[in-house]
Design a protein around this nucleic acid. Structure first.
Lengths: 331, 331
DNA sequence: CTGAAAGCGCTTACAG
DNA sequence: CTGAAAGCGCTTACAG
């Protein structure tokens, strides 16, 4: 920078002003400085800037599992918001491990990030999260709620989504409906299950314990879980799946059992992944717009930085997308 | 840090030594310093350290598309290698855009990263990449080669993979085989196509221009591309797909045409995604172990940092995984 | 509108 | 084995 100053015939302070686009520098001087920067191939040192100013444009997106396609959508949306505002989003992947989560987050703090977006790993402790947030670092949780942490959280309206999906199946005449997939260690599982149970209860339908089978959220989880449910009780005619990915696994299992989704049995998902409309049959599912999550999450961060009161929980709207995976059933 | 020094009754230098785990500090002193650190909730400032030492533990993984499941696997593997060695991997997503690629990389340079892993966006210029690498930042390309850049690149043995896949189909008696999917703007497309053509040529089989149809690498790309090919010529009995994801899209199109993969028509993919073995029929494909890519890529970085000669190109081994998506054909 | 000086929190020689 | 001093490249008041 001192070289740039020399080359442009000005002082370091002036170069700094130009670099940060401060108003009130003569256009002429700006021009000279920029030319010098270009000619010298000067690279701004953010370590030095951050050290002095205590500010950073780095924002961390701490992702629980990069292999999850829906999360990928959310990350992409959030990155878009962040970049638009001059932040530098970096994503780190914790693979559902609390240990990696805490070591990665500690590292990120050392790097002086301006804020955290985080999908908390199963087993995340409320104290840990609250203390992280206290330390002048804004924290926004994505997709998952950690009870007692009181950190702003943006997630889909899981209850309503599953309620709508289940009601739709009930409206089609289904009476024996199973709820399949999802990890019981994470908040969204319970919310989605609640939505399912509420719809069943309202319709006066019974849900046996054996109609509910949690599983990994991978494709194979759906395959295993639905097989268990159907082995126990073949009278099931409708399957409400924790996510679209689980539903894909359910398709596989059903087909292997000689059942055609959309004809012999009804299947509904949650997320509306891009692939879902290309499955055969096209999957009926609950859509949650990843862009909405990204946008609301960004707003939370901004409110925090502006010292506004940040609402603790924000529910992102959901919408049932009817395609061809649900047949009706004779009354 | 000065507070820590005071609390521990030592000098700043000693604290620094302890922090970096230098040998030759009395165990007693180390103990005192660590206690002070814990009690004061001290957070190491990497900006300051990086400014002074010109070193960084940050490594950037510049990903062309976070929504690509195979790339996600590679990233996860690479992160594992990096973390094992004390690096802090951060991933930034460029969404196949050269502009975002250059702005993100410029930002990353300002943050003084220790190295770049990058899957170059279509249209990446060789000069840009070479200059990036010159600037004392090690650069390793992943999955894609940029001609003329002379930057170490780690990618699957695309030619061999597709050669094996095609030979397999030929061995099953197929004579009319199409090559479907892939973006012509990226090196891997041409390599895979070459492997396909080589196998066909060796077997004395003709390939018409209309048997080859590039497309987006998304699922829908496969659907569209295979429909085009089959509309032009229904005598095709085997489909070699650019990737597994493309093959999934091909499945959809085929089923809509009343054709069952593995019975009426043969389909083979490339990547061996986790889902592929769960498709029905299970997809025959070319496996490229993401762990191998991660490991070789890490080695390249290390060699560079150790001032060893880094071999320019490294091909990762491939393996045909036979499952049930390929039928044989009467001679 | 521009310059000279101090200081952010570390690490790096260099003494001792 | 430990301490005192200088300096990394910026930004921040403060003069002028």
């Amino acid at each position: 920078m001192i070289d740039v100053a020399k080359a442009a015939g000005v002082s370091k302070s002036t170069v700094s002003l130009v670099l940060r686009g401060a108003a009130g520098v003569k256009a002429d001087t700006v021009e000279k400085v920029n030319t010098a920067i270009r000619e010298l191939g000067y690279v701004y040192n953010r370590d030095a800037a951050g050290l002095r100013s205590r500010e950073s444009n780095l924002v961390a997106i701490v992702a629980n599992d990069l292999a999850n396609p829906y999360l990928a959508q959310v990350i992409i949306a959030l990155e878009g918001e962040l970049e638009l505002r001059g932040y530098m989003p970096v994503v780190v992947n914790i693979n559902e491990s609390v240990d990696r989560q805490s070591s990665m987050v500690a590292s990120l703090k050392e790097h002086n990030v301006a804020g955290f977006f985080i999908t908390p790993a199963p087993g995340t402790e409320a104290v840990w999260l609250r203390e992280l947030a206290d330390a002048s670092h804004p924290v926004v949780c994505l997709m998952r709620d950690v009870e007692g942490a009181h950190v702003p959280t943006v997630m889909p309206d899981n209850r309503l989504g599953m309620y709508l999906a289940t009601r739709y199946l009930i409206g089609l005449g289904h009476k024996r409906i199973a709820f399949v997939g999802g990890l019981t260690t994470i908040s969204d599982y319970h919310e989605r299950k609640d939505g399912f149970l509420k719809a069943m209860r309202e319709a006066g339908l019974t849900v046996k314990d054996s109609d509910i089978e949690p599983s990994s959220t991978k494709r194979q989880g759906g395959t295993i879980a639905v097989n268990r449910v159907m082995d126990r009780d073949a009278s099931i005619t409708g399957i409400v799946c924790f996510t679209d990915v689980v539903a894909y696994g359910v398709y596989t299992a059903l087909q292997e059992r000689g059942l055609t989704p959309g004809k012999d049995i009804a299947v509904v998902g949650f997320d509306d992944l891009e692939d879902s409309r290309l499955m055969s049959p096209a999957l009926t599912t609950v859509r949650v717009r990843a862009e909405d999550i990204g946008q609301m999450a960004y707003e939370r961060l901004q409110q925090w930085r502006d010292n506004q009161k940040v609402p603790e929980n924000a529910l992102v709207g959901v919408e049932l997308v009817v395609r061809s995976s649900c047949c009706s059933v004779e009354g």
